[in-house]
Write a protein that binds this DNA or RNA. Structure first.
Lengths: 336, 336
DNA sequence: GTTATCGGCTTAAACGGTTAAGTAAATAAA
DNA sequence: TTTATTTACTTAACCGTTTAAGCCGATAAC
């Protein structure tokens, strides 16, 4: 199956040293034009490709980055990866993917295993499990890393996020404007700054409008779908909210199912807004009002900045970016 | 930023050779128990990780596979990747992702660039663009490769697919059973066996039931969303089908939008079935009858077989698998 | 005419790990 | 007791690439 073409192959054929071949392929000034042409021609003919192991062993560059995310099969993350991959391809970088399944043990194992020179840098959106802050504090000292969406606030690294506080604040305000009197909140990511800001936006909006804020109206995400379903059902049955903010897509859908089961009309009985990158949001029954994060752009920005760092342009942590999410009003919050 | 821990570090510290360290870490019988313990302990303490470049340079194993797919931000493919990643992690393999955007030039560039020892094997779902069959015929001779879902029929390699013919046949039959008299087909992947089989299933079902089969009832996928929308709209306006089979998810959604615009009732005026891995299919308005491929399992199977090949268990191309898709009947094809 | 400069190449040492072959001491077999 | 085997290592070559250093002949500078 093998028989690799290496620089040796080319060198032997042309009666030059491998050093010459290497330099010729890099278009080095040290090599004469005639020789370069010959090397290029033969390399092309033999379909020579640089061996990454040899190259990175010597040069300490792998032209590879890692992306560590909780889940791939998720609209937000798959869009983000798409953005990352597009930037990576432009610069001829390779992209390794790792899923943590929200498990911080796995997450730490992954990051540790990447410190041996397998990758030049890391893009990460951290798992929601309570995690070892200290671990990341050490990590950022050891390898270039950019956090996106789910970040550690107090770590000295570049972070690409959206304005979680304001989006949730506005979404809550939208529900209030639509006449909701009792707004529930489906809580997730609550030990990440991402999640904290979201719930804070909800909280502040309620407070400013003198509305009821009680932990009874908050349902916390569970990894078990059935549990979520039951919790939401209980919430709706016992507290009869007329509005719901879901901090993640995965909690909005069960909400729809519960309403179906309980024969509640959305939006008449219950208005729903969710963070979401569902492309079927407009086609749901009823269409879902969403806070849509620019997932693709987040991926692109995160990758761009990481590459900027890798190309030695020093990047200050304050080059962190906050992108805008969009509140897309649809029927699930229609006012009449 | 650097200062890697290498075998040399450990060797020096313990006053042994790097060979001893290497073998100790591999738990070789050549090394005494006492020495092994010391090496392991120090390796752990120093958080030593094998350098993949050095290791694969010598050993010709990278512990890395590539996944080449048309698009990441796609329910089917992101689920497949999820399956792949899960198997890979169990075996401590790393997964590189490449998107072709359905472009066969890019696809060939990727595969060629992977022949230099960057990966041990490839999982690929080929792009829908007309592509160079010959290229893949050569490729399979050079590197272990498993095709999934979108495959080249006549190439000597393992392929993991679903029963495209039967699923489409059954779906069409379902529409016929529901009373459809004029069934349209939204065509995609038509130069791949995947797409050919699907349309053949549609064709045969119609024929067996003495129903109209005409190319007028077939709309072909275009990369431009707006074009698809218009083509579907034209189809519905001019030919007034009462049923539609969509060979890909991306053509079913515009179909919904067209019906919305034209004020057509699904399923009364038009029944719709689509190949799809949408998890919101049950929540659409109306809920969508789907042919759902076991995307996650496809990814798992494809990865499993690739690893089997990589571990030298010779795998015959006839170990190819055909998994079952599920026809999930919902309101978009309800009969009354 | 001697010395510097330069163009175009080669040599050889690294990068980190693996492994065939060798060695020296201890133990077992003859 | 001598020889064979086993145990527990070490040595050194090698994987493919890069690069500092060196070399040699030719041209330019003085």
């Amino acid at each position: 199956m093998k028989r690799l073409v290496t620089m040796k192959t080319i060198a032997k054929e042309l009666n030059v040293s491998t050093a010459t071949v290497s330099k010729a392929l890099q278009d080095s000034y040290e090599i004469g034009n005639e020789t370069k042409q010959k090397v290029w021609a033969l390399a092309k003919q033999l379909k020579y490709e640089l061996n990454p192991a040899g190259s990175s062993l010597r040069g300490q560059k792998t032209k590879t980055i890692a992306v560590i995310i909780p889940e791939i099969a998720n609209n937000f993350f798959s869009l983000a990866i798409k953005g990352i991959e597009e930037i990576a391809r432009r610069l001829d970088y390779h992209v390794l993917i790792y899923q943590t399944h929200e498990n911080s043990e796995i997450e730490m194992a992954f990051t540790d295993s990447l410190l041996n020179g397998r990758v030049d840098g890391i893009l990460i959106s951290i798992s929601s499990e309570t995690s070892n802050n200290e671990h990341f504090r050490e990590l950022v000292k050891k390898i270039p890393i950019v956090f996106f969406d789910r970040v550690y606030e107090d770590i000295d690294a570049v972070k690409i996020t959206t304005d979680d506080y304001l989006s949730t604040y506005n979404a809550t305000k939208h529900l209030i404007d639509c006449g909701c009197k009792k707004i529930a909140y489906l809580l997730a990511l609550d030990n990440l700054s991402t999640g904290k800001k979201r719930v804070q936006g909800y909280h502040d909006a309620l407070k400013e409008h003198n509305m009821l804020y009680t932990s009874d109206l908050i349902v916390k995400y569970d990894t078990d779908e059935a549990v979520n379903y039951n919790n939401i059902k209980n919430l709706i049955l016992t507290h009869k909210p007329d509005g719901v903010i879901s901090s993640i897509e995965d909690l909005a859908l069960p909400c729809y199912y519960v309403c179906k089961e309980l024969n509640l009309n959305i939006p008449k009985d219950l208005k729903i807004i969710s963070f979401s990158n569902l492309n079927t949001a407009p086609l749901l029954n009823p269409s879902l009002t969403t806070i849509t994060q620019p997932a693709f752009e987040i991926g692109k920005e995160a990758a761009s900045i990481l590459f900027k760092i890798l190309h030695n342009k020093h990047v200050e942590p304050n080059e962190s970016m906050i992108l805008e999410s969009e509140l897309i009003k649809r029927d699930s919050t229609s006012c009449n």
